[in-house]
Amino acid sequence: MEKLDGIDKKILRELQGNLPIAKRPFLEAAKKVGIAEEDFFSRVKKLIEKGIIRKFGLRIDSRKVGFASTLVAMKVAKHRIDAVAEQLNSYESITHNYARDHEYNLWFTVIDRDEKELGETLERIKREVEHEEMLNLPVLRKFKINVKFDIR
């Protein structure tokens, strides 16, 4: 676990919010943290180098630009979970892939350019990946997406 000082924590809290689309978008965040813009940049760069910030930019609504996605729950033999996960990771369309403590033990998201491509990818997975069961759980309604953590 990374040890961060109070200033880094404040920076992360600010950057999780929505920054203004303005000529100097970082000015207010730096002010709130209580440091100069220059220090703000060097700290953010370090947080990126340390891998704490994954990316920093515009978040796009993938559905609004036409992408199609789904969540898949898969049941695989316990002893094969690592091998299956590795095989799934090789699909470019799979963006998130987790082992979860459940009878359905692999959960992954698949995202493609459109519904047709997504359907084809799911067919390929069904065919190529050895599994016991596979549930396709597409979104019907979106209530919220706002990833903001309680940074202590």
Partner: peptide, 18 residues
């Protein structure tokens, strides 16, 4: 138009102990 949701950073929360 909702194409851009936010201007923000995404954090590897696991690295922070979450």
């Amino acid at each position: 138009e909702g194409i851009v949701r936010r201007f923000s950073a995404s954090i590897r929360h696991r690295k922070l102990g979450i």
